[in-house]
């Protein structure tokens, strides 16, 4: 059973590696961020499989943390791209 779960984790990881190619190619920032999110989702899946295979319960907590912070990272990305233009706020700061 454990072997099967680890094989499944490896498989998920291999699939995710294909998403990695997407990051390499771009072309837009959003494409790249989506690829990172894909790796995020796949990675969490692999993590849960590994946790089940090794019988380590707390791995679920790690997955939970990752999921929450992945959401945070994508929001940070969205805000940075939409209103992170330095010259809007920067102009007011110049002495």
């Amino acid at each position: 059973m454990a072997e099967f779960l680890l094989a499944a984790a490896l498989f998920v990881l291999a699939m995710v590696a294909l998403g990695f190619v997407r990051i390499l190619r771009g072309p837009g920032d959003a494409d790249r961020m989506m690829a990172a999110q894909l790796i995020g989702t796949g990675g969490i899946g692999a993590l849960l499989l590994i946790g089940a295979a090794m019988g380590v319960g707390p791995v679920v907590d790690v997955a939970l943390t990752l999921a929450l912070l992945a959401a945070f990272a994508s929001v940070a990305f969205f805000k940075a791209v939409t209103d992170g233009q330095p010259d809007d706020t920067g102009a007011a700061e110049r002495e």
Partner: peptide, 22 residues
């Protein structure tokens, strides 16, 4: 792993993303 997910990858990653866009 928890610390890496929360601080190493998570918070540092978000910080870098925002900085790179700016």
């Amino acid at each position: 792993a928890l610390t890496e997910g929360a601080i190493g990858g998570g918070l540092t990653g978000a910080m870098l993303v925002a900085a790179a866009a700016r």
